[in-house]
Design a protein around this nucleic acid. Structure first.
Ligand SMILES: [Mn+2]
Ligand SMILES: [Mn+2]
Ligand SMILES: [Mn+2]
Ligand SMILES: [Mn+2]
Lengths: 205, 205
DNA sequence: ATAAAAACTTAGATGCGTCTAATAATATAT
DNA sequence: ATATATTATTAGACGCATCTAAGTTTTTAT
């Protein structure tokens, strides 16, 4: 579940939610009555500012929970999404406040996505896919474009996680794959994978 | 929320659940169809064995959660019930398994109530109210008959918790109150309070 | 034993979320 | 441009949980 586009169609929503279109239409009409969504007949739908805050508050609970599950309860980053999907709906400010404190007020979840602030605002940083960097550069992995668990398990097998430092040895012209140095080992990542890994130039030495 | 009697009336259930009687009647008819409850017109209602197991599994999640909130997240025992009331409905065996492991497979919740086993069975120990003990005896507090938070806060003020050792100095005939020694201090507890505290003879020294 | 009160059940109404079928608007292809 | 396909809306049906009103059974009081 994640629709990050500004505008969505009734159709897309129906698909993702596993509902029929008329159901979504009437949902949107109700959300519009609450001013959470802008809805006009036959037009694409988008969240209002109020709606974004409201959504941000749930995303905050989701991501804090994921962080808690990984850092405190020692779950793997590939295990936490489904659990957080449920806990995000718990109504207890003090519960999430305590999580936040225990975690030292983290700004990112275990997959590198930003945790919205207490008002529900998301700080959107610019993110650079690994494939945009050049050979010779040394980069740190800071985030993921997808966090489906097959992708996360793939990264586990390759020993890649947030904070992993990679030296770019070569970029293959033909298929866009990259040869990288990871610690002492060499590693080849295909183009689609490189597109789904966000990175920054490594700061230290 | 807690109805510990074997048999309940439609009326009581309606009261506790904040619903009207006909609503509860139809609920009971549905639960009876699932063999979770024994229901006959105009007769008191009780859980079947299947129903008790099912209930036990939810109580297990509730009490494990309360323990987790107190031991891991450092909430006070008076804060945890309402949060656990929500988290008990999370569907994630691995989540509660992890809690259980982190806590070292506890057998009691923070209020001294037993945690049902993985099959939903509750081990019912005999419990002795403080007022049944006699002067001269030294006892440990092992449980509570009620865990409403006003009662828990009262016990906090008196510095009484699970494991607290009390020496019974005197039992007042007239009103059934008890004079106790708690560490170096003396303490007077009224009859109603003594009835709601469970205790055992202190083992040590 | 009889009457009155309380508890309980049944029948039918209402609200809500979902669906299907029919219709309308918009987008795509020829 | 016109026809066709896709997307969206509306109207009305259905299931489900709840309620009120009316009638029945059981309990309590006299
Ligand atoms: Mn997630
Ligand atoms: Mn969710
Ligand atoms: Mn509780
Ligand atoms: Mn609950």
């Amino acid at each position: 579940m994640s629709i990050d586009k500004e505008n969505v169609s009734i159709n897309e929503l129906a698909q993702k939610l596993g509902l029929k279109m008329p159901t979504v239409t009437s949902m949107m009409q109700k959300l519009a009555a609450d001013r959470l969504v802008k809805y006009e007949k036959y037009k694409p739908i988008h969240l209002t500012e109020k709606g974004k805050k409201e959504a941000g508050l749930i995303i905050r609970k989701h991501r804090l929970t994921e962080m808690f599950l990984v850092e405190v309860m020692k779950f793997g980053w590939e295990e936490v999404h489904d659990i957080a999907e449920q806990i995000e709906h718990i109504n207890s400010p003090v519960f999430f406040k305590k999580m936040d404190e225990m975690l030292g007020f983290p700004e990112h979840d275990p997959h590198g996505s930003p945790i919205p602030d207490r008002a529900g605002n998301i700080k959107q940083a610019v993110r650079h896919p690994l494939c945009d960097f050049n050979s010779g550069e040394s980069v740190v992995i800071t985030g993921l474009a997808r966090s489906e668990d097959d992708f996360l398990k793939f990264l586990n097998r390759k020993n890649i996680g947030l904070g992993t430092v990679l030296n770019i040895l070569e970029k293959e012209e033909y298929d866009g794959s990259m040869k990288l140095k990871h610690g002492k080992k060499e590693l080849l990542l295909s183009r689609p994978v490189c597109e789904e890994l966000f990175a920054e130039i490594a700061s230290g030495t």
